[in-house]
């Protein structure tokens, strides 16, 4: 049985990188006594796949990984068992059954993600930054310099910003994510700082991921569904 586990990563845990979070969950699944499936061979690996890596320094309430179980367990029990072995800042939000097969792999499903971005005190892009948000989004193009390992190239990230709106003192972003089209909240905010005529420092931002979505729309129509909703509660 394949299950999808949704978890939150907050507080000091934001300093733990993606690879270490994978190792953390391999051990946590063992401590929780879930009967996970393993690969063959002398050093068997737990069969698990993570949806979308989260950068160091970013918190989240919408992280996912898929896990293959040999013995089924109810959603309620699995959540309880996992939460009993979590550390401060890590919380399992749901465990749901998802269809087997490569097509349903969490990582290949990822199409979009929601973020809440706030500014550290005194590091906002000017006093009237809120007024600039609509104009920023009305631009035809938002060009930024994207640095790769080999070179830099200019790209238009406008098509990847699905939504940008003010929420209190924070900015909500719905951005393209995944292997085909994607952009990062840092890049969008870097462009926004430039738009406000301010110098951008990555440390100005506190980024929180809220949710990760799959695209179920056909023929260019957008229909985003959270990865959690693709699964079903196990009784």
């Amino acid at each position: 049985m394949k299950v999808r586990i949704k978890f939150a990563k907050q507080g000091a845990m934001k300093f733990i990188g993606h690879l270490d979070i994978m190792r953390y969950f391999q051990k946590a699944v063992k401590r929780a006594g879930l009967d996970a499936a393993y690969s063959e061979g002398f050093s068997p690996h737990m069969i698990m796949s993570f949806a979308a890596p989260l950068g160091v320094g970013v918190t989240s309430e919408g992280e996912y990984f898929d896990l293959e179980l040999k013995t089924p367990m109810s959603s309620k029990e699995a959540v309880e068992r996992l939460n009993r072995v979590m550390v401060d800042g890590m919380e399992v939000r749901s465990v749901r059954e998802v269809p087997e097969g490569k097509k349903g792999k969490a990582m290949s499903l990822v199409a979009a993600a929601d973020y809440l971005v706030s500014f550290r005190e005194g590091m906002e892009p000017g006093e009237n930054w809120k007024e600039k948000v609509p104009a920023f989004m009305e631009q035809q193009e938002i060009r930024i310099l994207k640095k790769t390992k080999k070179n830099e190239k200019e790209v238009d990230i406008k098509p990847y910003i699905y939504e940008m709106e003010i929420r209190g003192e924070r900015i909500f972003l719905k951005l393209a994510a995944g292997s085909v089209k994607n952009t990062k909240p840092e890049l969008v905010m870097e462009a926004f700082f430039a738009f406000c005529g301010r110098e951008f420092q990555p440390l100005s931002l506190l980024i929180h991921r809220m949710e990760v979505y799959a695209e179920l729309g056909e023929e260019g129509e957008q229909k985003l569904v959270s990865l959690e909703e693709l699964g079903e509660e196990i009784e």
């Binding site: 000091a12 401590r31 320094g57 401060d88 440390l203």
Partner: peptide, 25 residues
């Protein structure tokens, strides 16, 4: 929640911040 001895700016600019935050299993 615990207050860390090092601030975000420091922790995000050094190698392996996990060395200094405790909170392990």
């Amino acid at each position: 929640m615990r207050r860390l001895a090092l601030n975000d700016e420091i922790l995000l600019n050094i190698e392996k911040p996990a060395r200094y935050i405790g909170n392990e299993v």
